[in-house]
């Protein structure tokens, strides 16, 4: 019962904030709505029994990415701080006309239907999983997986993070002769 309520609230937060993110014109508000979406996704992880992933999501996004985004908005806020009429319904006029939109809609419809067909066939043929409501802790299992099965990806991601750290520091540094 708790899981259903938590799922409902998280889903509402996720979807509502995602749509508000797309609809609002103010980029600062968009960042705050992104925060809401990410917290909602963390709640959805919690309903799936993924406690460690949910906490990592909050840790990385709330503590890091969203604050970084807000900093970037403030450091780049200039003459066009509020973006020009690019909300969900009033897309910029150069983005296409009714023919391109209808064509894209048709293509995406075919694409989605094909995918739904594929996924449903997979779901139907998959062996029925013995399903319990128990949600055991995933921390120790995840630790074993990261250090045994996925150790190469783990180490590569640490190299990636180091590269990103140095790269970001070098790119954002102002040139001396300017």
């Amino acid at each position: 019962m708790f899981v259903q309520i938590l799922f409902g609230l998280s889903a509402l937060l996720t979807v509502g904030c995602a749509i508000a993110l797309a609809a609002t014109k103010n980029i600062m508000h968009s960042c705050v709505f992104l925060l809401g979406t990410l917290l909602g996704v963390a709640g959805l992880y919690a309903t799936l029994g993924a406690d460690f992933v949910a906490t990592a999501q909050i840790m990385v996004y709330v503590g890091g990415v969203v604050i970084l985004m807000l900093f970037a908005v403030m450091l780049t806020g200039g003459k066009d701080f509020v973006s020009k009429a690019q909300n969900l319904l009033g897309l910029a006029p150069t983005m296409g006309n009714k023919w391109t939109y209808s064509l894209a809609g048709l293509v995406s419809l075919v694409f989605i239907l094909t995918n739904v067909k594929l996924i449903s066939s997979i779901v139907k043929t998959a062996p029925a999983k013995t399903f319990t409501n128990e949600m055991p802790s995933t921390v120790s299992q995840l630790g074993h997986l990261l250090i045994k099965d996925h150790v190469l990806a783990f180490e590569l991601s640490s190299v990636l993070l180091l590269g990103a750290l140095i790269g970001a520091a070098i790119i954002a540094r102002p040139k001396k002769n300017q």
Binding site: D51, F52, T55, M59, V62, G63, V66, I67, S137
Partner: peptide
Amino acid sequence: NVGVFYLVAISSLVGLAVF
């Protein structure tokens, strides 16, 4: 099971609030 981690993560909301 992720108690301390959760505490550190969720308390960073305060930093966002200050900002």
